[in-house]
Amino acid sequence: MIQRILINRLLQAVMVAWGVGSLSFVLMRSLPGDMAYRVAAGRYGQDNVSAEAAEWVRQELALDLPAWQAYLHWLLDMLRLDLGVSLISGAPVIDEIKHQLGHSIELAVMAILLAALMAFPLGILSGLRARGWLDRSLLLLSSLLRAQPVFVIGLMLILAFAVYWPLFPVAGFGQGNDWVLPAFSLALALAAVSSRVVRDSTLAVIHSPYYQFARVKGLSEWQTFRQHGLRNLSVPVVAFMGIQLVGLIEGIVMIESLFSWPGIGHGLAHAIFSRDVPMIQGTALMMGLLFVALNTLVDLACYKIDPRGRPE
């Protein structure tokens, strides 16, 4: 069963690589001007480009081959993690994205943790007292938050906690508390949805026949909740996390751009803006792989907490 999860996700990773690789190839071919000159300019600086250097690049990257051969070369290079050099900075793409990936994972993990810390207690409380004042106010808050793009949430946080009350840096990276605002922006967007999922799930669990039966067996309210509530209510919440990951990844692109956080999302937006195809490919690939990796973790967590569907 675990093997099946891993194989499925591995296949998905391959699809991501193929999709990103192909789109990047199309992008590369559709760029105006002579590709070889552009690559050479990226590598050796604008002033050092000679016909010779361009010819050398052309040979190396097989740029004069027919399209289908060039396409195969392109994909093979990607498989070997040879992602080329940035057309802008001239640095190898792999080095740049290695750093970026670390920053993005840091942000993603902090956001998920913060979101869980908010969503679970608040969701459970509003589920236990459904239609009470807490439930109603959280519903309103969640509806308002869900109607904001995540960059607007980030913007509000900046205006409030960096400009009006200068508690945190407006943007950038390097101070100890720099992660707080970007991570909170992402976490608020996540928690706005998942707190409602927790709430609905809690409500369903405490009205389920098995919850009732546990009470009737003689367990106290707290024992019933601990033994039968927590795990059962987590099942749909964790499964839903898989759907929310799309939003998280999209949020990372926005929030990193807004806060100039040196992660993959920022890198991707930047690369697209400056049409730096090797960087586009590298960052999109990492973004996709990060998405697949997080999805795999969600699958494994689902498998761990829900024994249904496992072979006997």
Binding site: G19, I272, I280
Partner: peptide
């Protein structure tokens, strides 16, 4: 559908927009 889902929607839109 699964192939398209393998990439987060916005990343796909960004890549296509780049073309």
């Amino acid at each position: 559908a699964n192939t398209l889902l393998a990439l987060p929607g916005l990343v796909l839109v960004l890549l296509l927009a780049a073309i």
